[in-house]
């Protein structure tokens, strides 16, 4: 049986107060299991990114619980949340968010350094990760010299750095052409299955459904089955 790695229990997120109150997310319960790809779909403003931020321990829910690897993180302070993010999560962003002063390899090394890897291992591990996403030959290129697909591959290598069990990807194909987008999705699915990662993709692109093991829909902050 696939192992449950993350669970949200009836999480709500409310912005503002009084008459200006907006419920971005209402009673959303989601589970993530190892080796599977979960796709969260919905129109713009439906609360996808809010849910992803809560799942990634970046945003605190107004109500409800988030359980990561069996630990309820509701009582955690900012330092503990940072530590949980460092240990359990890898992030892939729509705008890639690579550090422009660093080469592709150094972008991966940043995470390994943050995770306290020994200096001897950092270089070899980063090179290995770039090789895994097919970017070994572009390891020393700066982001400005990489294509959109190469940037996203670098971002995936960075998300995999340090072997986190959960990968959260926000619109990973939005800035890519359709062929490159498909390659990136296959790469994510392949890693979910081969490396037993729990991958969550947020997208409003129906083509992403092809790689997902499970799809949930969000509309006006509510989950639709």
């Amino acid at each position: 049986m696939d192992k449950l790695i993350l669970e949200t229990r009836a999480v709500n997120k409310i912005y503002g107060a009084g008459a200006a109150q907006v419920a971005a997310l209402q009673s959303a319960s989601v589970t993530l299991t190892q080796g599977k790809v979960l796709l969260i779909m919905g129109p713009s403003g439906s609360g996808k990114t809010t849910l992803l931020s809560i799942m990634g321990c970046i945003l605190r829910p107004t109500f409800g619980d988030v359980v990561v690897h069996g630990r309820n993180i509701s009582a955690c302070d900012e330092r503990e949340l940072a530590s949980i993010r460092r240990r359990y999560f890898g992030f892939v962003f729509q705008a890639f968010n690579l550090f422009r002063s660093l080469t592709a390899q150094e972008n991966v090394e940043v995470v390994l350094r943050m995770k306290g890897r020994s200096k001897q291992r950092i270089h070899a591990e980063a090179a290995d990760l770039l090789d895994r996403v097919g970017l070994a030959r572009r390891a020393h290129a700066y982001p400005r010299d990489l294509s959109g697909g190469e940037k996203q591959r670098t971002a995936i290598a960075r998300a995999l750095a340090g072997d986190p069990p959960i990968i959260l990807a926000d619109e990973p194909t939005a800035n890519l052409d359709s062929k490159t987008g498909r390659d990136i999705l296959q790469l994510l699915r392949g890693h979910a299955q081969e490396l037993h990662k729990a991958v969550t993709i947020v997208s409003h692109d129906p083509k992403v459904e092809e790689v997902a093991h499970r799809v949930i829909y969000l509309e006006d902050g509510r989950l639709k089955s």
Partner: peptide, 9 residues
Amino acid sequence: GTLKAMGAK
């Protein structure tokens, strides 16, 4: 922000 998201304090 990216560093914070990735777990930097």
